[in-house]
Design a protein around this nucleic acid. Sequence first.
DNA 1: GTCTATATCCCGATAGAC
DNA 2: GTCTATCGGGATATAGAC
Lengths: 195, 195
Amino acid sequence: MTTQRKPRGPYRKGVRRREQILDTALEVFAGRGDAPLQEIADRVGLSQAGVLHYFGSREELLLAVLRRRDTLDLAACEGSDGPGEAVARTVRHNMDQPGLVRLFVALSAAATDPSHPAHGFFADRYRDLTATIVRGFESGRRSGAVRDDEDAEHMARLLLAVSDGLQLQWLLDPSLDMAALVETFDRLCAPPNDG
Amino acid sequence: MTTQRKPRGPYRKGVRRREQILDTALEVFAGRGDAPLQEIADRVGLSQAGVLHYFGSREELLLAVLRRRDTLDLAACEGSDGPGEAVARTVRHNMDQPGLVRLFVALSAAATDPSHPAHGFFADRYRDLTATIVRGFESGRRSGAVRDDEDAEHMARLLLAVSDGLQLQWLLDPSLDMAALVETFDRLCAPPNDG
DNA sequence: GTCTATATCCCGATAGAC
DNA sequence: GTCTATCGGGATATAGAC
């Protein structure tokens, strides 16, 4: 436990710049899905080398962007009714940011390679999300909203798969209503003897 | 209608070479998911330029590989009981070919960009697969194997999404039993008042 | 902190000899 | 049909001045 002070004086500017670059990168990626460092540099009014001064490598910047997106997504589904609704909400929100979805899809595909810098990030992410959703389903069971004849972890993994798979289909055909489809899946997870 | 003869003489070798390259490329991609042309060239005992002599460009070769995989997949699920089982079978078969799955995931992500050479291929593919699965579900309904309280196209899209999404999760964590998960999804699509 | 300039890299594609 | 050689484009990363 080292004593850490809030950065001040000469540091402040650097910290803000970092934030600014991150914001800009998020925007750029949200629009195009992928872009050379140069483009982010231009937008933020810096040289390419300037950007690398803050993030040691391209991959580092990418990771930071992903983490930020995750954070924003999580915040956006605070207080949802259940996992299904939370995912539906997220998905609906993502429908405004095709580029970001594309970035995510492309990057998660690439991160599939164990030697990829983001491999750990994604592996952890799915593990954690699954656990969270399982808890949500279990709570839904207690209130009778979720069927209990199928394994909760199976349903959780399926929900995540649905979410990812639909994003792919949606990118190929933007007329698809992802949110409605997630809701359909959610109903498939309701107890069989209702209605 | 031009009169076409089966290639012979000097052509024969070329045709075989093409096949050989295609086979090799399929193997290489099945193992690594992506590779420079050079690697396929090495394996097939040709120079990189030699490979390009048969397939005008890298993308062309990639497309040919994808088509071949699709063909093999379709053949493998002839005579399945329903769409769910067909997909489960395919998925089980894919579990022996991580690299190919990776190639597919990576390429479909890239093909999301409308200007990508494989965009049309994937867009068509999902359209066609959806239609086929819808027919399967409708037939399943008539025999009482599939619930009829949800839209068949929704379920079809979800099945495809499940399949794609699970592949991603599986690549990140190979201990996942994709086939079992697909079967779980299949049960979610069964009529609610059974069992 | 920020820039300019440049070192590398990697790879696909092309030209042209054999 | 096949090779060698090479061009060309596009990026990332680094060195070093200011």
